[in-house]
Each structure stands twice: as C-alpha cells, then as structure tokens.
Design a protein around this nucleic acid. Structure first.
Length: 165
DNA sequence: GCCAACGTTGGC
DNA sequence: GCCAACGTTGGC
C-alpha cells in the first residue's frame, strides 16, 4: 500500500464537501498536470491512503485522510466545454486526463497546518515534497515514515497544548 | 531542440 | 494583490 498527498482548494472542494457527498465519496477530477496524472494512473492503487491538503486558503494544511476507492479512469470533465477544466485537445477516444475516486477515511480533529509541518523541514519531514521549494504538484507521494509521523502530530500537538494550558 | 512568452500555482 | 517558481506553448 502506498501513501499520497492530494491538494485541493477548499474554496472549490474541501474536506467538508467530501464529508457531505453521497457515501462521503467523490471523483478527484480536474488534474491537468502530467506528472500528477502519471502518479494517479500508474502508481495509485485501490486501498491506498492520502492526506487531504487544503491549499490557497486562510490556513493551508492537512485536513484529514481519504482512501482511494477506485483506480484511475478517464476524467470526463476534460470533454465538457462548460467545465472550468475543459481541455479541447483531449480526445474521448484517447483520453489524456484521468481521475481516481476517493472516500473520506476521517477528518482530523484539527488541521495540521503548513506552518507546523515546516517546523520539521530540517528533520523528519526534510524530504516531504510539498515542503520542497517551488513544488506545486497537486499529487505527491508520501513515504510510510512521513505518513506515520504526520499522523502522530495531531495527537502530539493536542498533548502539548493541554500541558501548556 | 531551443527558448521566450505566457499562464498557473500557491504562500504570503 | 504580489511574485517566485514552474509547466506549457509555439515560433524558429
């Protein structure tokens, strides 16, 4: 099983939108970057887990965990002229863009903020792709060690807040 | 194949 | 709104 990080702008689709969706499930559509597409199409497998990252918002950070419930299939929004991610060059006979389906695993009790992740930029998270300078990829792999560490931050921070209260 | 121009991303 | 960083496009 692999681990991932998926970015989305909560202004267009955030973790609460996923929580409100039927069966808490949705297609991760609109990806229009080849490297991100290749990760989805070639490496993502049913059962993989991914962080749901909120970008371009007041408090950027990881809001929760989703599970890949359907492997890559053609992203139909690419063929819809009314869709903001419409790609006139994509051919329905030979789809260029793909999406996976995800289901909400759980929403974190609090957002693990980008600020907090950056505190470990020189340590446990020195290789985390979203902390690398200039990285804009919307889909990035996360190592098992990074995954476990980040998941542990949720409770660790809570304990620290409580002890200092 | 090079590279300038342009568009997008995303934190600040 | 700014702007650094990056990807894509298209002329040559």
């Amino acid at each position: 099983m692999k681990y991932w990080l998926l970015k989305s702008e909560p202004g267009s689709f955030g973790i609460d939108d996923l929580a409100a969706a039927p069966a808490k499930r949705a297609s991760w559509d609109g990806v229009r970057n080849y490297q991100a597409r290749n990760f989805m199409r070639d490496d993502m497998r049913k059962g993989d887990l991914a962080f749901f990252y909120h970008s371009s918002c007041d408090v950027p950070g990881i809001a929760g965990i989703v599970r890949i419930v359907k492997e890559a299939h053609p992203d139909l929004t690419a063929f819809d002229p009314a869709d903001p991610h419409y790609d006139p060059v994509s051919d329905p006979q030979n789809p260029r863009w793909y999406m996976v389906d995800v289901a909400l695993e759980r929403k974190f009790r609090r957002v693990i903020t980008l600020d907090e992740l950056k505190r470990y930029q020189r340590g446990r998270l020195s290789e985390l792709m979203i902390l690398r300078r200039g990285n804009r990829l919307s889909i990035t792999p996360v190592t098992k060690a990074e995954w476990r560490f980040i998941v542990s931050l949720e409770a660790a921070e809570r304990a620290r807040e409580q002890s200092s209260a």
